[in-house]
Design a protein around this nucleic acid. Structure first.
Length: 821
RNA sequence: GCCGAAGUGGCGGAACUGGCAGACGCGUGCGACUCAAACUCGCAAGCCCGUAAGGGUGUGAGGGUUCGAUUCCCUCCUUCGGCACCA
C-alpha cells in the first residue's frame, strides 16, 4: 500500500489542529525553566520575503529544539508597524497609512502561518496600535522626567527626500546618505528631541555576561568610539578660557598653534579688526559646504589666521589661533591644540601655512628636525623640549597605559591646568521625526509654561485620522486644523502639541516587553510575566542593526533599569545573526532587479517543510548566500525519502544480520549526538547534512531487512523527533503514522546512548613520512604497541620500508601510525 | 588610513582540541527502470600522468614551527563589511 507525501494536505491540517489546541501557547509555569526566544519583528511591507523565512525558520527550529529539551519556550511575533513606507504609499496611492499597514499585517500574518512556526499569536504586538504606543509615549515621558530626554537647537542631519531629521546612526557611509532612501543628507538648524545615549557610553562598551558575536561587539565599540586623554584649558590673550581635548597631553610642549572650528562661539571674540573681513568670509564658505565636502579626507586643508593668540598653559608661550574646517564643532570641544610634529593633519596644515613645527617626542636613534622633517612622527620615543619631562618614554599605548601621557596628566591635575578626560564618537540619539505615521511625542508647548508633558491620563495621544498630504512633504500633523491646538495642562492657557513623531526605533526598543502582556493596560507590561520570562535568552536577527536597533535596545534597557522599570544589566543574553539570502545572480534581491524569490510559490510547489529544510541547508546561516533553485530539489528528495522509508513497506527483504542492526544503531546515536551539538551552536546546515547521511544508512538497513526490528523502530522514532524542529508537519504526520500519541512537539529530545556511539572497529591510517600509504582495519581498544606492530606488518608498508629501519614511529591512539624514515 | 570578517572541487559547503582534505547536497557523466520522457534508483568523479595497478600534486601566495598544518606563527595578495580630518 502506497501513501503519497502530500504536503499540501498535511500541512494545513496540522496547522489548524495546533491552533485549535493552542499547542504553542506560552504560559507561566514556575515548575519549568523558561526560555524566551525572540527574532526581530518585521516591518509590514506587504509580502513575506524569502529573507524573512531565512531569519525566522531556523530561529523557530531552535526554539522548538529548546522546547523538546524541556524548556517552557515563548516565541512571540509582532509588527514594527510605524514608518515611512506606509506614508509614501499613502501619498502615491491615496490610501491611509493605517489601512495600508493593517492590510499588510493581515496578509503577512496569513503567509507566516503557512511556515508552521511555533509563534504564540495571542502575544502579538503591533507598534502602531494605540494600546501599544500609549506606552511608547509613557516611556518618552519617563525619560523626560528622569532627565534622559532633552530638547536642543542644533545643526542636525536632514534627509531632503524623506523630509525628516535623522539620528546620527541613520546617516550612512562616506557619502553621508539616508539609511532608508540613500539620499545624501544636509545640515539643518532645528530644535529637536534627544535621548541621552551618551550617558551610557561606557556601559554600552561593556559586554560582560552576554554571549554576543564578536563582530557586533566590535561594531558597537567602534561606533561608540571611546578615546582616552585629557582636557586642557588654554587661555586667550584676553584671558578667556579655551578648552581642548587631546589624546596626547605628552605633546603639549609641541603645540605651536591652536585651531578652532569655524563655527566655534569664541571666534567672534578673538578676531582682530584687521582679520575680521577675511575670517568672516571663510566662515561663510565653510558653512556653505555640505557635510560631505567638508568631511572629505583627501581634501586639502584650508584655514585662516584670526589675529588672536592663546597662551599655552604648560610653558606660557604665545601661539596663534587659527580657524580651519578640519576641526569639527561636533567632536570634543570644537577646538584643538595643534602639534604638527606629531599629528599628520596638523603637520600638513603647518607646512601649508608655514607654521612652526617643534619636535617633542624623539624616536630612538633618529635625528629629527622640525624645520626639515617630511612627515609627522606619531609613534613612540622619548619626550624632549618638554621641561622637567625630558627623557620620559612615550610608547604606542593609549591613555594611562602610556607612561608619558600618564605622567603629564598627573602633573596637569596637580597644577589645575587640565584633567584626565574621555571623549566619545557616539552622539545623543535624535528621536524627533517630522512625519505623520509614528507615535506622537507626548509634549505640549505653552507660551507661558514652556514644554509641558501630557498628563498620563490623557495618553495615548492618538494620531488624527482625517489627514492630508501636501506635495511639499510637510507633516500632516502640522497642517491639521485642530489636532495640535490644546489647553496647557499646567495653566490651561492656549498651547500646542508637539507635531513631531518619534523615530520608529523608539517603538522597537521596548517591544520584547510588550509581548509579555500585549493587552495589559496598567503599565507597559505585567510584572508577573516580566519576572518569569525576562531576560530574553536568545535573540536573532540581521547584523545591519548592530549600530542602530541593537544599541538603542541596550540603551533603553539600561535607562529603564535606572528608572526602576526593569531589572538586570542587559535585555538579551545571547545574540546570533543570520546572513542575507541573495538572488540567483548573487545580487541583493529587489523588485527592480527581478531576482526576488517568493516563499509562497515555493510553499505551493514543495510545502513548507521542504522550504524550511532547504533554508537551513543551503548556506551557513550566519553568512547567507545566493539562492539556488536547483538545490532545493536535494532537500525535497531527502524529505520524500524520509516519508518513503517510514510509510512504505518493502516486500521480500532478506533476513537481517546483527551487524546491520548494530551499525544502524551506532549511526543513529552518532547522528543524534552531532545534531544535538549543532542545534546548540546554530549550525543548521550540518544538522540537515547529518540527517541526510543517516537516512542514506537507514535506506541500506531497510533493504537489508531491518524493518520490523526493535532497532529500526528506535531509529524511526528518534529520527522523527530529530526532524520535528525543522519539518514540524511531516514529523507530526509520521509520528501519528507509527502509532505514537499526539503530539510529536510535546516529546522530549532523545537521549544519546554513549555506549552505542562507540566504534568497534577503526580504520588505522598508516603514513610513511607523513604520507598516507595504507589503511588497516583494527579492533577498537588496540594498544599503541599492537598498532605499531600491525602497521609494520603491512605489505604496502614493507615495500616502502625497503628493509630500512624506521627512525621513529608515531602512534596516535585509535587514529594513525606515522613511520618516519 | 583605521577596525573587523573571509579566501577549500564546476557550485553551496564539511573537517571535534594539529592526525584519512573535499562529508552532505547541487550540477555533471555513465547505467537501471520506461516505447519514450519525467520521477525514482545505482555507480563514478579534486587536478595532472597512466588502459590499469599506481604515482605525483592539492585548502589565496610565499616562508616558518612540527613526525604530521585547511587548522598554529610571520609576511603578502584578494574580496566583503564598518568607520573615517574623531584631535
Amino acid at each position: 500500500m502506497k501513501k503519497e507525501y502530500k504536503p499540501g494536505e498535511i500541512e494545513p491540517k496540522w496547522q489548524k489542529k495546533w491552533e485549535e489546541d493552542g499547542l504553542y501557547h506560552a504560559e507561566i509555569d514556575p515548575d519549568r525553566p523558561k526560555f524566551y526566544a525572540l527574532t526581530m519583528l518585521p516591518y509590514p511591507s506587504g509580502d513575506m520575503h524569502i529573507g524573512h523565512w531565512f531569519a525566522m525558520t531556523p530561529s523557530d527550529a531552535r526554539a522548538r529544539y529548546m522546547r523538546m529539551k524541556g524548556y517552557n519556550v515563548m516565541f512571540p511575533m509582532g509588527f514594527d508597524a510605524f514608518g515611512l513606507p506606509a506614508e509614501n504609499a499613502a501619498i502615491k496611492n491615496n490610501i491611509h497609512p493605517k489601512i495600508w499597514t493593517y492590510a499588510n499585517i493581515d496578509r503577512m500574518r496569513t503567509q507566516m502561518k503557512t511556515m508552521g512556526a511555533m509563534f504564540d499569536w495571542r502575544r502579538e504586538a503591533i507598534s502602531a496600535d494605540p494600546k501599544y504606543y500609549k506606552w511608547t509615549q509613557w516611556y518618552f515621558k519617563k525619560l523626560f522626567e528622569n532627565d534622559l530626554a532633552y530638547r536642543k537647537y542644533s545643526a542636525v542631519d536632514w534627509c531632503p527626500h524623506c523630509n525628516t531629521t535623522l539620528a546620527r546612526e541613520q546617516v550612512w557611509g562616506e557619502d553621508k546618505v539616508c539609511e532608508r532612501c540613500g539620499t545624501p543628507v544636509i545640515k539643518k538648524e532645528l530644535e529637536q528631541w534627544f535621548f541621552k545615549t551618551t550617558n551610557y557610553a561606557d556601559e554600552l562598551i561593556n559586554y560582560e555576561g552576554i554571549d554576543w558575536p564578536e563582530r557586533v561587539k566590535t561594531l558597537q565599540t567602534n561606533w561608540i568610539g571611546r578615546s582616552e586623554g585629557a582636557s586642557v584649558v588654554f587661555k586667550t590673550e584676553q584671558g578667556a578660557p579655551i578648552e581642548v581635548f587631546t589624546t596626547r597631553p605628552d605633546t603639549l610642549w609641541g603645540a605651536t598653534f591652536m585651531v578652532l572650528a569655524p563655527e566655534h562661539p569664541l571666534v567672534d571674540e578673538i578676531i582682530t579688526d584687521e582679520h575680521r573681513a577675511d575670517v568672516e568670509h571663510y566662515q561663510h564658505e565653510a558653512e556653505g559646504q555640505t557635510e560631505i565636502e567638508r568631511g572629505a579626507v583627501d581634501k586639502e586643508k584650508t584655514g585662516i589666521f584670526t589675529g588672536g593668540y592663546a597662551i599655552n598653559p604648560v610653558n606660557e608661550e604665545k601661539i596663534p589661533i587659527w580657524i580651519a574646517d578640519y576641526v569639527m564643532m561636533r567632536y570634543g570641544t570644537g577646538a584643538i591644540m595643534a602639534v604638527p610634529a606629531h599629528d599628520e593633519r596638523d603637520f600638513a596644515f603647518a607646512r601649508k601655512y608655514d607654521l612652526e613645527v617643534r619636535v617633542v617626542i624623539k624616536p630612538e636613534g633618529v635625528e629629527m628636525d622640525g624645520a626639515t622633517m617630511e612627515a609627522a612622527w606619531p609613534g613612540e620615543g622619548v619626550m624632549v623640549n618638554s621641561a622637567q619631562f625630558d627623557g620620559t618614554p612615550a610608547n604606542n599605548e593609549k591613555g594611562r597605559k602610556n607612561p608619558a601621557v600618564s605622567k603629564v596628566i598627573d602633573w596637569l591635575e596637580e597644577k589645575s591646568l587640565g584633567k584626565e578626560d574621555v571623549n566619545y564618537r557616539l552622539r545623543d540619539w535624535l528621536i524627533s521625526r517630522q512625519r505623520y505615521w509614528g507615535a506622537p511625542i507626548p509634549m505640549i508647548h505653552c507660551t507661558e509654561c514652556g514644554v509641558v508633558p501630557v498628563p498620563d491620563d490623557q495618553l495615548p495621544i492618538e494620531l488624527p485620522e482625517d489627514v492630508e498630504w501636501l506635495p511639499t512633504g510637510e507633516s500632516p500633523l502640522k497642517l491639521h486644523p485642530t489636532w495640535k491646538t490644546v489647553a496647557c495642562p499646567n495653566c490651561d492657557g492656549p498651547a500646542e502639541r508637539d507635531t513631531d513623531t518619534m523615530d520608529t526605533f523608539m517603538c522597537s526598543s521596548w517591544y520584547p516587553l510588550r509581548y509579555l502582556s500585549p493587552d495589559y493596560d496598567q503599565g507597559p507590561f505585567d510584572q508577573e510575566e516580566y519576572d518569569y520570562w525576562m531576560p530574553i535568552d536568545t535573540y536573532t536577527g540581521g547584523i545591519e542593526h548592530a549600530n542602530m536597533h541593537l544599541i538603542y535596545v541596550r540603551f533603553f534597557h539600561k535607562a529603564s533599569r535606572d528608572m526602576g522599570i526593569v531589572k538586570g544589566p542587559e535585555p538579551m543574553m545571547q545574540l546570533r545573526n543570520q546572513g542575507m539570502v541573495l538572488g540567483e545572480d548573487s545580487e541583493k534581491m529587489s523588485k527592480s532587479r527581478g531576482n526576488v524569490i517568493a516563499p509562497d510559490i515555493l510553499v505551493d510547489k514543495y510545502g513548507a517543510d521542504i522550504v524550511r529544510g532547504y533554508l537551513m541547508f543551503f548556506a551557513r546561516w550566519n553568512q547567507g548566500g545566493p539562492w539556488d533553485s536547483q538545490g532545493i530539489g536535494g532537500v525535497a528528495r531527502w524529505i520524500r525519502r524520509v516519508w518513503t522509508a517510514i510509510t512504505e513497506e518493502l516486500p521480500g527483504t532478506p533476513e537481517v544480520k546483527d551487524e546491520v542492526l548494530k551499525s544502524l544503531r551506532r549511526k543513529l546515536h552518532q547522528t543524534l549526538k552531532s545534531v544535538t551539538e549543532d542545534y546548540e551552536s546554530f549550525e543548521f546546515n550540518t544538522i540537515v547534512a547529518s540527517l541526510m547521511e543517516l537516512m542514506n544508512e537507514m535506506y541500506k538497513a531497510r533493504e537489508a531487512g531491518a524493518v520490523g526490528t526493535q532497532d529500526w523502530k528506535e531509529a524511526v522514532s528518534i529520527y522523527i523527533r530529530m526532524i520535528a524542529p525543522i519539518a514540524p508537519h511531516i514529523s507530526e504526520e509520521l509520528w501519528e503514522h507509527i502509532g505514537e500519541r499526539y503530539s510529536v512537539h510535546h516529546q522530549a529530545w532523545p537521549e544519546v546512548d554513549e555506549e552505542a556511539v562507540i566504534e568497534e572497529e577503526i580504520t588505522l591510517v598508516v603514513q610513511v613520512n607523513g604520507k598516507l600509504r595504507d589503511r588497516i582495519q583494527v579492533p577498537a581498544g588496540f594498544t599503541d604497541e599492537e598498532a605499531k606492530a600491525k602497521a609494520m606488518e603491512s605489505e604496502v608498508i614493507q615495500n616502502f620500508l625497503d628493509g630500512k629501519e624506521p627512525k621513529k614511529v608515531i602512534v596516535v591512539k585509535g587514529r594513525l601510525v606515522n613511520i618516519v624514515l
